[in-house]
Design a protein around this nucleic acid. Structure first.
Length: 107
DNA sequence: GTGTTGACCACAG
DNA sequence: GCTGTGGCCAACA
């Protein structure tokens, strides 16, 4: 199990933050950015998840844009929506239902 | 080393 | 309410 994680600490931070998201909960890029002490770099967070070198180890499908919108995903966001629905997350028109209820605040 | 792009967010018009 | 612009950070050409 070589830990040849060819990633930067920033990627690790994002990865760890995503991993902290429990099942049936969702988080936002901004929240993750806050969790990693980079509150203004939600784009960099999305960039890190876009490459998603740890997928599917990282539940990036539990990460959405602000407001609870799905936003964009690397591949088949619809599939991830189905997964979220299976997890217990209700999604309507590419938007998270009860987002404020299932929103997981990191830290 | 500079410029562009990117799964974004917030504010202004 | 929607569109447009600015801003932050990181990775890539």
């Amino acid at each position: 199990m070589n830990n040849n994680m060819e990633i930067t600490e920033f990627q690790k931070s994002v990865y760890k933050a995503c991993e902290k998201i429990p099942k049936g909960r969702v988080s936002t890029y901004a929240e993750i950015a806050r969790a990693i002490k980079n509150p203004d770099s939600s784009r960099a967070v999305g960039n890190a998840l876009n490459k998603n070198p740890f997928a599917p180890k990282v539940p990036c499908h539990r990460v959405v844009k602000s407001g609870g919108f799905l936003g964009g995903f690397a591949s088949g966001q619809a599939d991830k929506i189905a997964i979220l629905k299976k997890e217990g997350v209700r999604i309507l028109n590419q938007k998270i239902v009860n987002f404020d209820k299932i929103f997981y605040k990191i830290k």
